[in-house]
């Protein structure tokens, strides 16, 4: 096997161009689903790979509670630098679990706190709060609620307000928070997956934009709503790397809405750049999954041979 055992850890690098192409060329719905699935599988594979490295590399070290049989010499021969890799895998694995646990816990507490803040309001799906700070959020959980501040709504025309609520309803209806949670967990499981998180955050917004445009019947209205809302919202606090900055997600969303609606292909043709990217994603994910599965199956076989059950 050689260095191939490390493949699931670095294969996410291949997903960067894929995420970029999917974000630009695919329908936002397809792109969100595809990139989320790729990120999820790659994160699982990379975590599994870390766990196996840890078992194989450290089972025979003195003081380790794992049975020595779990680390067969032949298996260790297949892993380059098995002891170093094994020892390095322990803190890495711990870091992954801690980061993922903290994220899930934060999601839960913030969501519950936000719902609690609204308990005194009547049980309508849309809650408008008198607040000067402009904000609008979709709160998943239960039937889902939409909360918007008067500070934001005051700057929008009636049609644009409808567009805003349609956007947030689209978030709730399609369960976008699940996609976002998956990619955020994935980005914590393997930092190489961070560009995929950024891509899905963007495509999920685009998805909601497109749904909102269909609901209110005008792409321009949604574009104007986003543009105005962005201009009254707080500017970014740290204008760093101004020369390198490419247009942020908000102008790209507005520009995309001013172009014709994207077409939803079932599966892009293989000869185009998008098709190549999609096939590349599929193959890369498959290789990563197979590599992990291979290691896992080998481990199970060795365990069965080593421990007389």
């Amino acid at each position: 096997m050689g260095v191939f055992v490390f493949l699931p850890l670095v294969l996410p690098l291949t997903a960067w161009p894929i995420a970029r192409l999917a974000e630009q060329h695919l329908h936002p719905r397809t792109a969100t689903r595809l990139v989320t699935a790729v990120a999820g599988v790659m994160a699982l594979c990379s975590t599994l790979c870390l766990a196996l490295l840890m078992v194989v590399g450290t089972a025979q070290l003195p003081g380790n509670p794992l049975p020595d049989g779990w680390s067969d010499p032949e298996v260790r021969a297949a892993v380059p630098f098995d002891e170093v890799a094994g020892r390095a895998a322990i803190p890495a694995l711990l870091a992954v679990f801690v980061a993922c646990g903290r994220l899930a816990w934060r999601h839960r507490t913030v969501r519950r706190a936000a719902h609690r803040a609204l308990t005194a309001r009547p049980g309508t799906p849309v809650v408008v709060l008198p607040d000067e700070e402009p904000y609008a959020y979709a709160l998943p959980g239960g039937r889902g609620r939409i909360v918007a501040s008067t500070g934001l709504l005051a700057h929008l025309r009636p049609a644009e307000r409808r567009a805003l609520f349609a956007h947030e309803r689209a978030h709730l209806a399609a369960g976008h928070h699940r996609f976002l949670l998956v990619v955020q967990l994935a980005a914590r499981a393997n930092p190489f997956l961070r560009p995929l998180r950024t891509a899905v955050v963007y495509t999920a917004e685009r998805w909601a934009d497109e749904d909102a445009a269909r609901a209110v019947g005008s792409r321009r209205t949604v574009a104007r709503a986003i543009g105005r809302a962005a201009l009254v919202s707080r500017p970014s606090p740290s204008p760093t790397f101004a020369a390198l900055a490419s247009p942020g997600p908000v102008p790209r969303r507005v520009a995309a809405l001013l172009r014709p609606a994207p077409v939803a292909h079932r599966w892009p043709p293989a000869r185009t750049a998008v098709g190549l990217a999609a096939w590349g994603a599929a193959v890369g994910t498959a290789v990563s999954a197979m590599s992990s599965a291979n290691s896992a199956v080998t481990m199970v076989l060795i365990l069965r041979a080593a421990t007389p059950l």
Binding site: L180, A223, P235, P247
Partner: peptide, 30 residues
């Protein structure tokens, strides 16, 4: 990271870009 906001923070050049796009969106007919 936890709540999906309607709009995210703007980059340094984004404001100008959005103003241009808004003009485009407002000038032309629906």
């Amino acid at each position: 990271a936890v709540l999906a906001s309607f709009v995210t923070a703007l980059g340094p050049d984004d404001e100008q870009l959005i103003r241009a796009l808004l003009n485009e969106a407002t000038d032309e007919p629906e």
